[in-house]
Amino acid sequence: MKRQKENIMKYVFLICACMSILFVALICIFLFANGLPAMAEIGFADFLLGKNWKPLQNQFGIFPMIIGSIYVTAGAIIVGVPIGILTAIFMSRFCPKKLYKIIKPAVGLLAGIPSIVYGFFALVVMVPIAQDLFGGSGKGILTASVLLGLMILPTIIEVSESALNAVPESYYEGSLALGATHERSVFKAMLPAAKSGMLAGIILGIGRAIGETMAVVMIAGNSAIMPESITSGVRTLTSNIVLEMAYASGLHEEALIATACVLFVFILLINLCFSMLKKKEA
């Protein structure tokens, strides 16, 4: 009797575990089954490298969006990574206990704010500031990059901090014993040892930045053009989908699903990098 119960529960757990795999598989099948024929119809080169996105004239080139996603993500890395890593180092090694009690939950809270709230904040606060500073509309790569940099901070900080904390204390002590200062020990002994863990955090952050939608769509300007300057409007892969999904029909709709395919491949590559790093670390 007891044995039977045990077995039943085992299968319940197994089914639960299979569910997530099943959903990933279903999403994969849906995306590629709908996206690939559309890509073939448009022509793979025309779709991926075409510079004109005019769905009503049957021009479906998503190259500006691919570039847009890469620019905005790169900008987010430039803004978010230095701040994130230095914050993690501070929290792990320099922070007074009292301050830590404030910073730690604050970072956690930053991760919990819904992206639409970030977007609205950026629209009413950051966009006017950018307008005053740089002229133009205030919407574009720069604003989107700064906002995304903020949004990926918690991911980078949390992962980097735990990577730093996981470095054996003996590294630090050994460095001190050799006559290095506290700062030197942290930057020269601890930091290199935690490098791959921190990289993993950065990659997770990149994944979040490239997939972010609601916040970006409000402040990126969304012009489907090759960006000319850092303040020019930009459309990312995600915002292209969310912008036009409601009204799209026929090939237009399929082209949007194909856009999702491309995004999915990007995310797959990022995850692949992440798991390779993890393996190296282990």
């Binding site: 004239q57 009413v124 966009v127 409000m218 969304n222 409007g233």
Partner: peptide, 29 residues
């Protein structure tokens, strides 16, 4: 003739409220 000539540098939004906020906050829009 069904060819939309809207200038490609135009900012695009999918929501009325973002449109209103943008215009209200930008003197040249």
């Amino acid at each position: 003739d069904d060819v939309d000539n809207t200038v490609s540098t135009a900012e695009i939004t999918q929501s009325t409220s973002v449109m209103m906020t943008t215009i209200a906050g930008n003197e040249s829009a």
